[in-house]
Amino acid sequence: MGLFEAILLSIITASTPLLLAASGELIAERAGVLNLGVEGMMLIGAVCGFAGAWATGSTAIGALCGIVAGVALAALFALAAIGLAINQVAAGLALTILGTGLAGLIGAPLVGENIAAAPHLWLPGLTDLPLIGKLLFGQDAFVYLAIGLMVGIAYVLARTRTGLILRAVGDDPASAHALGYNVAAVRTLAVLFGGGCAGLAGAYLTLAYTPFYAPGMTAGRGWIALALVVFASWRPGRLVAGAALFGAVSILQLHAQAFGLGVPSQLMSALPYLATVVVLVLISRIRRGGSVAPAALGTTFVPER
């Protein structure tokens, strides 16, 4: 296997959790809800996913546990930010603090345990093709799931009534409410979906990326996923490109260390975070004036009767 192919493969692996978490957050934000708890939901997904797979030996059950854990935390956020109209920024921060603490509590006995990593697809003939074989036909189930999810989201948002209602609630909740839609219910469902995706993204880290659990192993990926949604200007298609770019930066860091460039390893480790800042500035600068964010993003909505 050539180095080039190895790098491409590792970029896909590094991009998948970002893509999963960001696509869930994209749906929540299109409904007008800014959930800053992605990091917490990912971490709890990572630890619960690992616990599930460790107890049952099944990757699928592990993934399911991760999703359920993410949805549970998201439900707490929905109760606070939608049910009680709490400031979304503050509630999201609370969720990350709580999720990090809970994950540490649940994960403490699991540190040092091992599981079998998620199996990769194997199609005789196709997977053996040079260069593209492993890239297209040799990934684990999460990768295909993430891409399928992205296509589904793009279709639902652009082509279906469900997508139209979701966008209406995110752009103008007062009008959507006046038309008879239940803004709170739509937003809650969107937030729960986001939680499930974040949980799955976290589970990917422990089930496929590294088959073990370490405290704080999301290492800011939840926050990078949030930045990705801005980077993609809330469009699913651009999310794929963004995830690949961020994945590439984090992989570059590993390979640069292997090549032994005379650069401190800490500088290379800081690259994904610095890149996020640079990209945020560039993207926001280009779009200064004509904003493409959902119009009601981050605002609470309490109908006057």
Partner: peptide, 24 residues
């Protein structure tokens, strides 16, 4: 584990925010 402190603090923050909502 030390993480228990984080759990307590997270729960506390949620309740603080929720109670503040009752002011309005």
């Amino acid at each position: 584990p030390q993480d228990m402190t984080g759990v307590i603090q997270g729960i506390l923050l949620f309740y603080v925010l929720a109670c503040d909502s009752l002011i309005l």
